[in-house]
Amino acid sequence: MIRNLFFYIREAFFSTKKNGIISLATIVCLTATLIIVGIFLIISLNINIFIANLESQLIAVAYLTDDLSQDEIEKLVQNTGGLEGVKGVDYVSKEEALQRLKEDLTEHKEILAGIQENPLPSSLEITVYDSNYLEEASYQISQFKGIEEVNYGGQLTKNLLIVFEFIRKAGLGIILVLLFVSILIMFAVIKISVHSRQEEIEIMALVGATNWFIRWPFIIEGFFKGLISSLLAFAVLGKAYQYFSGQAKEIIPFISINLEVDFALRIGIILLFLGIFIGVFGSMLSLRRISYEKL
């Protein structure tokens, strides 16, 4: 098996060298495609992170009427907690609310100076498992006795989520199209390589090489082309990402752009798998229709 492996690898390199220009063209095409795929990956992963952040911050706030007893408040917390999709309920008392306001307004203390009585209502802060639950839960809570009003992120957040979801889906669509295109490229190129070695394949079949023995060198060729292309694409993307994310942070500071090592690693691994998958799958596809037996 090892002996065969050496043979396959040697044949693969032999063929790559023999079809130098075509091999170069394949690697360039594949690298370019992977870079574009990578760009969309980075965008959609960043959006995922952004959405996750946003969603974790989404809460509904239910303001309570001032006339509730401690028992009634506890019952409300219990009822709210039992609703579908509700993750947690925090009770915020009038005093706590005022305290928070004071903290928020440290620079404008004069606003609060004239206030004698605490005007703030006590409230329940409700977190949900998924932002989709927010609307329904808010409605249910507003029906409880002792609730004055329920506020949640509202239409703006909802719209924002819809836009991001659209971008994410469009990005995924573009990635799939590019993937298909790059498999076709690989398919065509390996086909050329196969044709240029038709005679060799015939001879192999004639002297009793099994079909898989004939296929392996081409598959390995595809594998290495995919590997090289994905490494190149990763290097280019890495440099470009470093540069542009720095710039982007200055322009739109509120968007959290991810620059961490494990994020880069994730992109790298995805690109690596994609490159190798395209290379190998393209090769297999173009080898499928060779007739080894008919000579």
């Binding site: 032999f14 023999k18 001879i203 002297v207």
Partner: peptide, 24 residues
């Protein structure tokens, strides 16, 4: 003939043994 013109004489003959997995 159907020879492989990108390999020498030895390799052409060896080819039919290599593809059947014979030891070097």
């Amino acid at each position: 003939f159907k020879l492989l013109y990108d390999r020498n004489v030895f390799e052409n003959v060896a080819f039919s043994l290599r593809v059947t997995g014979v030891k070097n």
